[in-house]
């Protein structure tokens, strides 16, 4: 059972200066699964994602990637296999779009330059930006920048992709293009954990919705089930609120 888990998060805890933000979180992800993480602001969603690749090292608990434990000593190699998409893109500003998608392949995985270029071009096509290869990030719209950052993560051929509110920094009219790329990835069989308030995405693409509050997972299940009949009052209230606003 645990063997075929791509991502296995076990009892992760994290405190900031005495404030316990994650109070024992566990969940697993099989190959090709997409799980959407929702919860009120401050519930610890970002912290959880950042604990998975040790951008914020967890205090307790264990994380396994395809059966191999993520540890401080193998962290760079593990991060190369965990794609991370940030809310504010964080594209490398001094590099062209193509080089943004190439650089980690070359420097981290040691991929040959021409192979990396070809792969980069391929991933840019996949997110619909094949014609922007020579542009600089500052010359792109937010939606385009976010799609490049998805291509950058994909080019590393990651076991799993983590998205932390990928559309929250975008103007409303630009969220669609990013959501569509994510939906395509989900249906292409990418393994992903997505923190988002885009409930249309959750409905269509999520295999499971995980509801977090106060550092705990308080409910999880297929989105249809949670949307129609969440067992927990607070889950229901929260889903109603974002359903109205999104």
């Amino acid at each position: 059972m645990t063997d075929d888990l791509v991502l296995d998060v076990r009892d992760v805890k994290k405190s900031y200066e005495g404030l316990e933000v994650l109070k024992g979180i566990g969940f697993g992800l099989r190959r090709g699964e997409t799980k959407v993480l929702v919860g009120p602001s401050g519930s610890g969603k970002s912290t959880l994602l950042r604990c998975i690749n040790h951008l914020t090292p967890p205090d307790e608990g264990r994380i396994f990637l395809s059966g191999e434990e993520v540890l401080e000593k193998n962290i760079d190699a593990m991060r190369a296999r965990i794609g991370f998409v940030f809310q504010d893109f964080n594209l490398f500003s001094h590099l062209t779009v193509l080089d943004n998608v190439r650089i980690c392949q070359v420097k981290v995985k040691g991929v040959a330059a021409d192979v990396a270029t070809e792969r980069a071009q391929q991933e840019l096509e996949r997110v619909g930006l094949g014609d922007k290869a020579s542009a600089y990030p500052a010359e792109l719209s937010g939606g385009q920048q976010q799609r490049v950052s998805i291509a950058r993560a994909l080019a590393m051929d990651p076991d799993v992709l983590l998205f932390d509110e990928p559309t929250s920094a975008l103007d409303p009219e630009l969220t669609g293009e990013v959501v569509r790329v994510m939906q395509k990835l989900a249906s292409d069989g990418m393994t992903m954990v997505v923190v988002t308030h885009e409930m249309s995405f959750a409905r269509q693409a999520a295999d499971e919705l995980i509801f977090m509050e106060n550092g705990y997972i308080i409910e999880q299940g297929p989105p249809q089930q949670l949307f129609s009949s969440a067992a927990n009052d607070r889950t229901r209230a929260f889903l109603n609120v974002i359903a109205e606003h999104g």
């Binding site: 690749n53 951008l55 760079d76 190699a77 593990m78 991060r79 190369a80 296999r81 965990i82 794609g83 991370f84 940030f86 504010d88 964080n90 594209l91 490398f92 500003s93 001094h94 650089i103 980690c104 420097k107 981290v108 995985k109 950052s149 950058r152 993560a153 590393m156």
Partner: peptide
């Protein structure tokens, strides 16, 4: 240089030195 640049470089697996050399220093 915005903090996110370093974070993104580390997140894709660059060592601290690589991130400084390839991302922070050129900027």
């Amino acid at each position: 240089v915005p903090r996110g640049q370093m974070v993104a470089a580390r997140a894709c697996g660059m060592s601290k030195w690589q991130a400084i050399r390839h991302i922070m220093l050129p900027q």
